[in-house]
Each structure stands twice: as C-alpha cells, then as structure tokens.
Simulated scan of single mutants.
Amino acid sequence: MLRNMNTPNEADDRMRTLAELAEMLQVSRSTAYRLRKEQDWPSYEFGKIIRFSPRDVEKILAMNRKPTKSSEPVRRPMVGTQRSQALSRSRNFRNGFYR
C-alpha cells in the first residue's frame, strides 16, 4: 500500500539520498561518500542510486556515537619528583627497607 508522503507524521519514514543524509549530519557530500565507503554504511542500492531508510540512518548514527567518559577519576601520569619518589618507595619495599 502506498502512503501519502506529504503528511507530517510520515515524513520521517521516507528514504533519504546521500546528499540529504550529508545535510542532516552536517558534513559535506564528499565526506559522506568517503565515510559510507570506509565504514560500510547500511543502504539500499538500485543500480547507481543510493538510498537510506530511517532504520539505516539510526544504525549509522549508532555506529558513530562516541561513548561518554566513565565516572572514574582520571589518573594523571606521575612525572618528575612524584615518579622518582614512587619508584624509590617500591624499591625500598622490595629490598626490605620500610619507612
């Protein structure tokens, strides 16, 4: 059954072109073509015509979602005096010199 694509509720159900997807993602068309090839984006191909379903768009967005940083505190690397003190403490502990 064909649906009327002009109704607002069904506007998001339509297939999108690569140019429309690039505009939606706010990247250039050439970047979208490159990412499609590099990341093997899901799509429908009809000869040379490429279309993306709403489900394909969701998958593409999920593929490129960057996870949030964990709530664990970030450990700064020890440099300079802190590192040398930590090394001497571990050496003293191993050699039986406790403080």
Rank of each mutant, 00 (worst) to 15 (best):
M1A: 12
N4K: 15
N6S: 07
N6Y: 13
T7Y: 02
N9I: 09
N9R: 14
E10P: 05
A11V: 10
D12V: 04
R14S: 02
R14H: 07
M15C: 10
R16T: 00
T17Y: 03
L18F: 06
E20W: 14
L21Y: 06
E23G: 07
M24G: 00
T31H: 12
T31E: 13
L35Q: 10
L35I: 03
K37T: 04
K37V: 00
K37P: 00
E38A: 12
D40Q: 13
W41M: 02
W41C: 00
P42Y: 08
S43N: 05
Y44A: 09
Y44R: 13
F46L: 08
I50C: 12
S53R: 05
P54M: 02
R55S: 08
V57W: 03
E58H: 07
K59A: 01
K59T: 01
A62C: 02
M63I: 01
N64M: 04
R65T: 04
K66M: 14
P67H: 13
T68C: 09
K69I: 01
S71E: 12
E72T: 11
E72Q: 13
P73I: 13
P73Y: 10
V74E: 04
R76D: 03
R76A: 01
M78T: 07
V79S: 02
G80W: 09
T81A: 02
S84G: 00
S84V: 03
S88A: 06
S88H: 13
N92G: 06
N92H: 14
G96M: 08
